[in-house]
Amino acid sequence: MNIFTLNIVLAISWAALTGNFTLTGLVVGFAFGSAALYITRPLFPGSERYFLRAWRWIKLITLFLYELVVSSIEVVWDVLTPTQKSNPGIISMPLDAKGEMEVLLVTNLISLTPGTLSLDVTDDGKTLYIHAMFADDPDAIRKQLKQGMERWVIEAME
């Protein structure tokens, strides 16, 4: 049985013991199960990878939510103020993400962020075309996306 399955079993067991079969009860059970498995990780060979991967996914979600809030504020500010600072443009970005799932996750996270939209990926999956609301400096946008979302996705998917 792998560690994730064991963690699910512990979460369901927690919910059964407390009589709280709600989403909150399962999340609490999953958290307690994770803590118990983390403490006993020397007993489970290969569990280090599970916890490293879980940490990377938590990091990806947290950093995406931060980017979401910051870009939302920037777009709202530009829309509500009398002067328009937006300079829309289309940018091509070479992709380091390998595999369909990594490319799909990168493009979806970019599209979910206000002010940016993934337009197309080349057939070979090596270039992504992005519409940016603030495209004053395309190199800075490329750098921010490559060092931000794309890197976080690649780390989480390893």
Rank of each mutant, 00 (worst) to 15 (best):
M1Y: 09
M1R: 11
N2I: 06
I3M: 08
N7I: 06
I8D: 02
V9G: 02
V9H: 05
A11S: 06
I12Q: 03
I12K: 04
S13K: 03
W14S: 00
W14A: 04
L17E: 05
T18E: 01
F21W: 15
T22R: 02
V27Q: 13
F30T: 00
G33V: 06
G33C: 10
G33D: 03
S34V: 00
A35N: 09
A36Y: 12
A36Q: 01
L37E: 01
T40Y: 09
P42W: 10
F44W: 08
F44E: 00
E48D: 15
R49P: 03
Y50I: 00
Y50W: 10
Y50S: 06
F51L: 02
L52K: 08
R53W: 09
A54T: 06
W57E: 02
W57L: 10
W57G: 09
W57F: 15
I58D: 08
I58R: 07
K59Y: 11
K59P: 01
K59D: 15
I61D: 03
T62C: 08
L63Y: 12
L65S: 11
Y66Q: 11
Y66F: 14
L68Y: 11
V69R: 06
V69I: 15
V70W: 09
I73H: 05
I73L: 13
V75F: 04
T81H: 14
P82E: 02
T83F: 14
T83D: 13
T83E: 13
T83G: 01
Q84K: 13
S86P: 13
N87Y: 09
N87H: 07
P88C: 02
G89R: 04
I91W: 01
I91E: 11
S92K: 09
M93I: 14
A97P: 14
K98H: 04
E102T: 12
V103G: 04
L105C: 08
L105Y: 00
L105N: 05
V106I: 08
T107M: 09
N108K: 08
N108Q: 10
L109Y: 02
L109K: 08
I110F: 00
I110S: 00
I110L: 06
S111A: 03
L112R: 04
P114V: 14
P114K: 09
G115A: 03
G115S: 09
G115I: 12
L117W: 12
S118A: 10
S118F: 06
L119R: 13
V121L: 13
D124K: 15
K126Y: 05
K126S: 15
L128C: 08
Y129H: 07
I130F: 05
H131Y: 07
A132T: 06
A140V: 01
A140M: 05
K143Y: 03
Q144C: 07
Q144L: 12
L145N: 04
Q147M: 15
G148L: 03
R151I: 00
V153D: 07
V153E: 00
V153M: 01
E155M: 13
A156N: 03
A156H: 07
M157A: 10
M157E: 03
